[in-house]
Each structure stands twice: as structure tokens, then as C-alpha cells.
Design a protein around this nucleic acid. Structure first.
Lengths: 345, 345
DNA sequence: CTGAAAGCGCTTACAG
DNA sequence: CTGAAAGCGCTTACAG
């Protein structure tokens, strides 16, 4: 590939002048500028970003470590992150941790070695020494969705407590009493919070959340299937299963279907995180929707602010309940006469 | 951050020796090695990959430009690509083109500027000058899923012709005669091939594919909705809609549902690309499944071979039909007595 | 086995 | 406005 020297030679100027033209430095004569631009054109020259980064100590790159690319929630998050970053002049390199702390560490290390300008993380665990060291060393960082308590890093997330309360109220209105949850890993904030929120909401209705009704999942589909089987095997199975993310809801659906059971007649199902397919599942699934795109954008803005030396604050948005049919028909609703009844607001 | 000089000073050796230790060069005394390793440890030193890349002219990085991250097919592809690349000692940087040629070009340019060692592309169009130039300039490249005819680059993809023939035979067996397709962009190979395969398979059954039954989509959900509405508005609507990818099938489902129609009673639906949710949609959707993970791995192997100076050949795997209920019940099947009939092989 | 030196492709104070 | 020079953090032939 042509280097800056080739361009300089072709244009009859020094490399310094070429560099100035390329970086829009004001003090370059119109003539020199024109000759450089022409040389760039004829040689098809493109500056070497590696060399530029080494020299300037900036990569204009953000690292994003997500918990699981196969989870549509994180895919959507990644997309909005890339979009906002691009708008602000940054590229993003995505690392997929697959819910595995060791893989997460692999990616954090890789990203740090590449000297990314800042790191966006949705931690799969309580924080490895590596990540904690990076924070201490002053790497600009922002947590998104999940975070690590006690670490001084801005957090951009959605608070689902109100939505979980709405969900429990909905469930109680439908007459359900035995409510179970498929939890995410206790090492994650979202894994803990969703259980806590659920338990608190049940408490407000005078209901308990027995240990047997808290299944331990890992946010991936297979665990949802396994936990649901255990729940169905209980002497007194729950009437409702609330999956703490969409993939575990998928697994739950697999388990229910494998037994020849029906939702919601035999068991009701709800999920945290809404995805487009939930409208078309059998039955459509009641879910808690996060403002995913806005979370991604806010996280990027906070991180870029930190990188550029501005404050960069935490942001908490709220999630909302989307009622569909997987928990049962509202008692007031008569059997629909037309195939698609419209619910009036 | 500590640099190689700091380590050298701490260990009482030269930077050259530190470098040799870090790169497992044989000619280093055990004593020097131990001192260097100790210094690396105490300083928490990590080599600067940017500097290393500049010097060695290798980034150990692969670029992957996919058409749409929100499409589960590409997400799965990206995951397998990263996995295989990691196993071979490479990282991957993903660029999401969102089915837009301009965005695709943006990412190709960005990746090239970063001097990635090789490029994996699933082109959204017939190839921009930029991409063609890159090939001409000798950038190691491999096309995956979609490709650009006439360009000398290995192609790793699945051939869906046989599966499409199986689909048409299945449809004919169910008695359907008026079959329509929601096509992908004509600028993509998969956009064209799936229509061609469908038309050829219909021809083998003495059926035509009228222009009115070929809806022009762009592989994204919204286009599937729009095209399906047009199809339903026809004086003689089709009995079956075959969506050329899973997102357009989602859009088709939206359109059908919005009219209060049912699948397969009012209109049958099938899709290219199988995803896990298709088992749980209402009804479960008949789809053509690609060996996605294997495609990703084979593509990486071919690309790395090219990078390392070995041949690196094209690979064509085959797709297969997965029959579910969205095209109607097979005439032989009586209404199931138990909720989940098991089909015996 | 080891170090001094050159150089990868840039950018940027410095001097003119 | 312009260029020579230094230097970012590495690696690697070369000489010893």
C-alpha cells in the first residue's frame, strides 16, 4: 500500500505537509493542498490507522463486551451502540462473552491490548481482577444493562421494578397465586434484581416466593428448559413461570411443549425483555420491554464524554410491561368474535 | 501504561531481550527470561498491539462485514466466525451493513484502514469499486453466504436448490397451486438464486411463477410486511407465500395477522433460514435450514489459509427443508390425539 | 545469548 | 507556509 512518503514524493512536498493536508491543518498553501489531494487520488492512498494510533495514542475505537450475541436484546444493544458511536466518530469492536467470565476476560484483555479509547461492558460476573485493574488504571469505562456494585463507573441501565410490579398485579388480577421465576446468575446485577423485584412485588400482594419457585438459570435457553422441567416436576407446580430474559423463556417454551402442555391453560409464562417474535409465538408472550436502543445510545454518550474529559453520568431509564396472552385472558374479555380483537387504550 | 522500556529497565536487560522473551524466541538465557517475566508481572505490563502491528505488518485480525446484525442468521454466523477465528489465534471486528451498500463501504474502508489481515464479506450488493479495488490490491478475502460473480475470491455458502425443490414438492403434495415468493434484493446472489430455484422447482411441476407473485423485498422485516399486503390485495391472492429470509417471514406474519387472517388456513407461509423461534410461532413455520455454524467456520478456515499463503478454497454445503405446520397438515395426518404427536423417523 | 540500531507510518513541536 | 527531526512502542537483522 502507498504510504505517506509515496504521496509526498508524488506531490513534491514533505510528509509533514501531506499529514497537514490530511488533518485539515490550516497552515497549508492552496497550491500544496491541491497537489497533495491529487497525489492521494492517483495513488489511492489511505492513511494507516495503526501508525496514526501509535503516534497519537488514540484509536477512535470503543470496545463493547456483551454477555451473549445470540440474545436479541444484546444484538439490538450492540446495533444502537455502533450507530451512536459512528455518529460521534468512533468505531466499535464487539466482544461476545457468551455468559462466560473467562471469555469476557479474554475480550477485555484483547481490547485493552488494542488500546481502545474506552470500554462499554455488560458484565457477566462480579468483576475479574483484570477489569477492576483497568478501572483503577483509568481506562474510560461505562457499564450498560448490568453493572458491578462498588466500582466507580457510570451505569446506564433500565429499572424494571415498576414493570415487575405491574406484571405481578396483572398476574394476580388473572387469579394466579403460585408464581415462580427463572433467575439469571446471582453474580449479575440483573440476575439478582429481577428476583428481588419479583419477590418484593409478591410481598406487596401478601404472597411469598418459596425457594422451590426460584430456579437458577444462566440467561441462556438451555437453562430455561432445564429449570422449567424441574418446576413442572414439583409436587405442586407453579401456575406461572416468569423468565428473567427472553432466551430462558424460549427454553421454558421448549420444556412446556415437550410435555404436551399448553400456555397459558396449563402454565402461564412471562418474560423479561421483549422481542419481535413474542407477538407471533403461540400464544403471544407477555413481556417487560426495555428501551434498548436508548440505553445503547446513552451508554455511548456517557463513555465518549469520559474519553473526552467531560463528566459522563449514569442514566436509569424505565422498562414497561407489555401484556399479551401468555398469562391468560383478562376475565373481562369475552372469547374474541373476530380472530384479531383490537384492545382499545 | 508501562512500555517495553520500563520492563527492560526493571529487569536490567535491553528492550530487545524483553521482546524475545515475550515472543518465545529460543535464544534467551533462563536467567534473563526469569527476570523479564518477573518485571512483566510487577509492572502489569501488556504489549501494545498497535505498535506490534505497525512493526510486523500483521494485526491478527479478521474483518467481517455482515448484511444485518439484527438477522439471527447473521448473528449466528458472526458467532461461529469469531469462535473459529479465536481458535486460530485471530480476533474479528464486525461491521454491520444493515443491508445498505453505503454502510457496507464505510465498514470495508474502516477495516482496510485498520489493516486487518483479511476480510470476510457477505455483500449487500454487486460490489463497490472500493471492494473490487481491495481484491485487486491483494487483500485476502472470502465471501460467505452471498458473493459477487466474476470476482476471484473463494465463496463459502449453502446451496438451497435441493431444499427449495423439496419445499415445492411438499407444497404441491398439500394441494397448493398458487405459490408466491418474497424475494431479496436482486443485487444479491441469494436474492436472485432463491427466486430462480423457486421458479425452476415450480417449472418441474408444470407451474409458472407469475410476475405478480414475485414481491420485491430487501431481506428486512418491513419489506416482508409490505410485500405480503400487496399479495393479499391481489384479485387472486396466492395460497402460499415463501419468504426468502426469516425477517421477511416475520413481516409477512405481521401483515397476515393485521388482517385477521390465519396461517395456514387462509394463507400458507414458509421461510428460507430456520431460527429457533420458528418452533414456537403460531403455527410453527416450515423453513429451509442452513448449516450456519459450519459455514462460518469454513469461511474462517479458507480466509486464514489465504492469509497464511495456503490455497483456501470455496466450499458449498447444502441446506435442508424442515417441515412444520405453516403450510398445512399433510393429508395423511389425522388430527392429533395427544397435544404433541411425535413423528417417527 | 545480548544489545545497539534501524525502521514500521504516522504527527507535531521547532526553526526558518 | 514548509521541512527536518524526533518519537510513539515495538521487532529483528546484524555484530559481537
Amino acid at each position: 500500500m502507498a504510504s505517506i512518503k509515496d504521496v509526498a514524493a508524488e506531490a513534491g512536498v514533505s510528509a509533514a505537509t501531506v499529514s497537514r493536508v490530511l488533518n485539515d491543518h490550516p497552515s497549508v498553501s492552496a497550491d500544496a493542498r491541491a497537489r497533495v489531494l491529487a497525489a492521494v487520488e492517483t495513488l489511492g492512498y489511505r492513511p494507516n490507522a495503526v501508525a496514526r494510533s501509535l503516534r497519537t495514542d488514540q484509536t477512535h475505537t470503543l470496545g463493547l463486551v456483551i454477555s451473549d450475541v445470540l440474545n436479541p436484546y444484546f444484538t439490538e444493544l450492540a446495533r444502537s451502540v455502533e450507530e451512536e458511536a459512528r455518529a460521534l466518530g468512533y468505531s466499535v469492536i464487539i466482544g461476545n462473552a457468551d455468559e462466560r467470565p473467562d471469555l469476557q476476560d479474554h475480550h477485555v484483555r484483547n481490547l485493552l491490548d488494542r488500546r481502545i479509547d474506552g470500554l462499554l461492558v455488560s458484565p457477566t460476573d462480579g468483576g475479574s481482577p483484570l477489569m477492576l485493574d483497568a478501572v483503577r488504571a483509568g481506562t474510560p469505562m461505562v457499564f450498560v444493562d448490568r453493572w458491578i456494585p462498588g466500582v466507580d463507573v457510570p451505569v446506564v441501565r433500565a429499572d424494571g421494578r415498576a414493570a415487575v410490579r405491574d406484571l405481578v398485579a396483572h398476574l394476580r388480577g388473572l387469579g394466579h397465586r403460585r408464581l415462580a421465576i427463572i433467575a439469571g446468575p446471582a453474580a449479575t446485577t440483573t440476575g439478582r434484581e429481577r428476583v428481588d423485584a419479583f419477590r418484593a412485588a409478591l410481598g406487596a400482594h401478601g404472597l411469598e416466593l418459596p425457594d422451590a419457585y426460584v430456579g437458577q438459570g444462566d440467561f441462556q435457553a438451555e437453562s430455561g428448559r432445564r429449570v422449567t422441567e424441574g418446576l413442572l416436576d414439583l409436587p405442586e407446580p407453579p401456575e406461572v413461570v416468569f423468565a428473567a430474559d427472553n432466551l430462558m423463556a424460549l427454553g421454558a417454551l421448549d420444556a412446556v411443549r415437550a410435555r404436551g402442555l399448553r400456555v397459558p391453560e396449563d402454565i402461564a409464562l412471562a418474560a423479561f425483555d421483549d422481542i419481535r417474535w413474542f407477538v407471533h409465538t403461540d400464544p403471544p408472550i407477555t413481556a417487560i420491554a426495555q428501551p434498548t436502543g436508548e440505553l445503547g445510545r446513552a451508554a455511548v454518550r456517557a463513555l465518549v464524554a469520559r474519553i473526552e474529559g467531560r463528566p459522563g453520568e449514569s442514566v436509569t431509564l424505565s422498562a414497561r410491561l407489555v401484556v399479551r396472552r401468555s398469562c391468560g385472558e383478562p376475565p373481562s374479555a369475552l372469547p374474541p368474535l373476530s380472530p384479531v380483537p383490537r384492545s382499545k387504550p
